[in-house]
Design a protein around this nucleic acid. Structure first.
Lengths: 194, 194
DNA sequence: AAATAATATTAAACTAGATTAACATTTAAT
DNA sequence: ATTAAATGTTAATCTAGTTTAATATTATTT
């Protein structure tokens, strides 16, 4: 099982003993998905949290008008799950779909709870992980309120240059909350402005 | 020191022994602010997290054009702090200002770290608190992307009816990410539509 | 009670971004 | 190599929300 990337990631935040690593590893499931497959579907209950080893996923929801809104992308060393559904057993508002062949590590709700009890350090680990995710989420709200679409695109480009290369432009537009046509216009503006 | 509301709040999430409560309480500072006073100012480092006992605060930032954007309100039993600044010692992007006389309980970064070490259960407590905050933040991003200003206003009204009563309308507009003039228009539309 | 400051309303002109639709280009499949 | 499918571009028209500015209302202070 290729869990080394996850252990490396964890050890940057907390230090686990060999026994703890072994125990935690026993609670994990390694899994491969093909491009196009769904890890989670809107309406289902999200029972696992996924740590991405390789590949790329999009998290999105489809609104009443059938329009897709991408909430986030996930690549190597990112977590993907609908935490709201995961923690409260509620039907998920989101889909998580692979946009590349993807390898990931899953941990189920019951197993993560067992691991928390056995290794309290993991509470610390996930507190810190979620703190960071929350801060990033707040910053995104701020950007959405005070920046134009063009500025948001430039921030995205600068923050995630590798992601932009890997996904079609219409998905970037969806992530930015604008239409693909308008992103196209923005890009030609940028290209012609010097 | 009036920390009972905080202990009551905590005990809904984790169970502390009497000793643990005493230890934790020894790390807290009770404080009163007057309407208009700042708990945190943009550019300062946020060194404390605040639990509100009574009163109301707004968290906002002022953009390059001098415009104020309200990120959240805090009332009884809510936390207020710039977590990004708090966890990374970085200058804060936000102001937190009292819009009513406010009583709150502060815990400093160093004291919360001490408390985490002494009482690992607190890691769990704050993991759970931040999980909830993160989920709420994600939901707000979704709303901002897929709902009109009118719909967002109606959701706000329904979610926080008590808050709407306590704050001026132009602050609601700022929180919703629209101008006060447009909120006024929305309200008259709603009033005239039956 | 009058005066001032703070908050809210209304309406006209304006703009960022959406919608529609036609066309161009790239990628994948046969 | 050809075709079909997916992705990207361009331009005209439209709309949700902004800006500006004048006026009205409500609180607060003296």
């Amino acid at each position: 099982m290729k869990i080394q990337p996850l252990l490396t990631y964890i050890n940057k935040i907390v230090t686990l003993t060999e026994d703890e690593e072994l125990y935690f590893a026993s609670k994990l499931v390694y899994r491969k998905y093909l491009k196009g497959q769904y890890i989670l579907q809107q309406g289902d209950i999200c029972n696992t949290s996924c740590f991405i080893i390789s590949g790329c996923v999009k998290m999105f929801y489809v609104d009443d008008l059938g329009q897709e809104h991408i909430i986030m992308f996930g690549v190597e060393n990112w977590w993907a799950s609908d935490l709201g559904s995961f923690i409260s057993h509620a039907p998920s508002d989101f889909n998580v779909q692979c946009i590349e062949n993807t390898e990931l590590i899953q941990i189920s709700r019951s197993n993560i709870e067992k691991a928390y009890s056995k290794i309290p350090k993991l509470e610390r680990l996930f507190r810190i992980i979620i703190e960071k995710a929350y801060v990033a989420s707040q910053k995104r709200i701020v950007r959405n309120f005070s920046m134009s679409a063009k500025q948001r695109y430039l921030v995205f480009k600068q923050s995630y240059p590798e992601i932009e290369q890997r996904i079609p432009q219409y998905m970037v537009a969806s992530y930015l909350g604008i239409t693909k046509e308008f992103l196209s216009k923005i890009k030609s503006q940028i290209a012609n402005q010097h």
